[in-house]
Design a protein around this nucleic acid. Sequence first.
DNA 1: TACTAAGCGAGACGGTACGTCGCGTCTTCTT
DNA 2: AAGAAGACGCGACGTACCGTCTCGCTTAGTA
Lengths: 207, 207, 207, 207
Amino acid sequence: MNDMRTGGTDLETGQERKAPGRPRDSKADQAIIEATIALLATGQSAASLSMDAVASKAGVGKATIYRRWPNKEALLIDAVATMKGPLPELAGESVRDDLVALVAANWTNRAKRYGKVTACLLPQYTRDEEMQRVYQAITEPRRNAMRTVLRRGIDNGELRADLDVELSMLMISGPSVVQNMLHFNPNVPEEGFPEALVDAFLRGARP
Amino acid sequence: MNDMRTGGTDLETGQERKAPGRPRDSKADQAIIEATIALLATGQSAASLSMDAVASKAGVGKATIYRRWPNKEALLIDAVATMKGPLPELAGESVRDDLVALVAANWTNRAKRYGKVTACLLPQYTRDEEMQRVYQAITEPRRNAMRTVLRRGIDNGELRADLDVELSMLMISGPSVVQNMLHFNPNVPEEGFPEALVDAFLRGARP
Amino acid sequence: MNDMRTGGTDLETGQERKAPGRPRDSKADQAIIEATIALLATGQSAASLSMDAVASKAGVGKATIYRRWPNKEALLIDAVATMKGPLPELAGESVRDDLVALVAANWTNRAKRYGKVTACLLPQYTRDEEMQRVYQAITEPRRNAMRTVLRRGIDNGELRADLDVELSMLMISGPSVVQNMLHFNPNVPEEGFPEALVDAFLRGARP
Amino acid sequence: MNDMRTGGTDLETGQERKAPGRPRDSKADQAIIEATIALLATGQSAASLSMDAVASKAGVGKATIYRRWPNKEALLIDAVATMKGPLPELAGESVRDDLVALVAANWTNRAKRYGKVTACLLPQYTRDEEMQRVYQAITEPRRNAMRTVLRRGIDNGELRADLDVELSMLMISGPSVVQNMLHFNPNVPEEGFPEALVDAFLRGARP
DNA sequence: TACTAAGCGAGACGGTACGTCGCGTCTTCTT
DNA sequence: AAGAAGACGCGACGTACCGTCTCGCTTAGTA
């Protein structure tokens, strides 16, 4: 996650080269990320979180942060990535149940906190290609899981053969994300949302 | 839109009471919003837009801005609301075509610029209830149009009788919004997106 | 002069303790004071001198100024103190000549410029006890010199034995100051003022 | 004091010309001056007194003030002039006693408050010739009184024939002013100051 | 055991923007 | 026309962050 390492790998030989001098303190990495997450949870927005505050809360000098991350946004991206929980266990029997499980995994309290923090990063996200790649990398495992489930459904006949997989992923994740981050449509109840969404997606709107 | 008004309503009679003193200059409101939009279009992000620049470009003192909006974010919200284009004309024949028209209206270049700016404001939206209400108010006409189309479809039998209207709205808007603002799934082609989305929504995923 | 220092004295041992962190840059102190004096000489008044201008001229961030002085007035006080020239050399033979020399030292062009700037600060002097003490500290060496001269005069019989030294100091400095700063009585000629004042003080008004 | 009158005197005929429209409200003049004095007494300095505060306290629109005085300083000068008490009654027998009475008149509590306010105006005073003339006009009656007393002393032999009257005025007023405004020499007791000053002035410093 | 190189906490540094306040003017309606 | 009320353009204020730069000190590997 955090780069900007000294020493590291010698590109010509491919062998590890031991960096001279005092090595980085891994407790610092951890303390910084934890302080960031704590302040994000407390605070109001990404803008209202200051690097001085992170340094102070982590008991760390500011230079120690900037030695690891090039700027505030990079740190936030990493902190958010850390907040992402593990992928849910998929039963692997019914495609419908697996999709519900995937949506529900983004519907926990933890995920909602994550959603709020993510929203704080959107301004950077929409603008910086580098950040988009980082974000895609973080979410790729999840997208892949859903892709696999959908393909399985097509193969075993649970889903229509001509289903557009990528569009379907967007149709399942999109409503979930906007509702999570923006409370987009306040008239949709939270209770039972994953099931309702997946069932409506499967069933379609025609009679 | 902008509040913080002087004068207002006489509580006893309920009649409008003319505020004393020099009234606000409505040309200033307009100039400020226009300057904000112009700078948003030019600039990189909401953060890179400075109030001094807005004031200068609008030919207005900073106090004149802060007399109307309590802070930078509130101004941006209002500026973005102004960017929203008019509702599309709906043919009113096929429900499918009307839904496509509604989605396509958020798919123009103008709407994409709007989407980018909106993304910059999401941090505020997600935490400030006041801003959420403002945002709801801005989007309410659009949601209402879609609600009407869906109800018409249920009534005339184009859509299933047990369709959850609110959830359906989310299922159409959600993918559109995240794709517009976040380029959420880079594997979904832009070309023909509104038609593909609506058709998939209507058809469902089952064979 | 400028306070608000970090670090300081270890209370238990009474020894100086080195403050942690990067130490203040003494070149900044100097550059700020010099910029202030330069702008005071150029400008019209204390009010017309802006902190932004000082910072810009000194090639320094505003925070660097405010780290050293709590506000504009405190900076001006220090700048003015720096403008005070050195004490004049006293011949030490005739008390009368030494007093004339002391008065004349406040009668140079430099001293008049100093007087004008000081006048700009009087509002602060008159109400802030802290600033009064600062001012007293600045002027104490001069007052002491005059006190010494007067005492010598009493001892060697040049002055009357029952002379009130403190009142006499006020009687010599007071007219000089008001005339210098305020041009208090426009009917008193500038030419030969120090001699005339001292001689009149020595001689008295009685026949 | 306050000028900028409409109507007034026709310079060619010397006759009064009645101004058209609503006449000035003399209660406003009074309320403004009183509010100014009250705020000066309360507040910290001339700079910390705002025209908005004066207008508000006087229950008057700002334009009403600016119709009478061209700017803040002019108002302050007038307010200060109003604070000046009446000239003391002079017994007219002993020159020494009359001088003591004149000094003592500047030594009352009222005079000290006046001194503090005057100090607030010095920055303007030292810079603006117009203000100097106004100030000289205010103080001229006092200076004239002292001049008369000193001349009487010369004429009747109480004072030396070659006394420099203007310099003497400065020698009496100067110490009083600086001590009053600046607490210039804290070692000089307030008690009995007028008598001590006048006696020392008369007696001289030589044995 | 000494030397070199880098990491560390602390905090100062040059900038940039913030949101507030005051000045002196202008604009409304009312007296 | 003057009055109260208050908006206006301007410009300075003092604060908060950013990302960088010293300080003196610590912690490793190398000589």
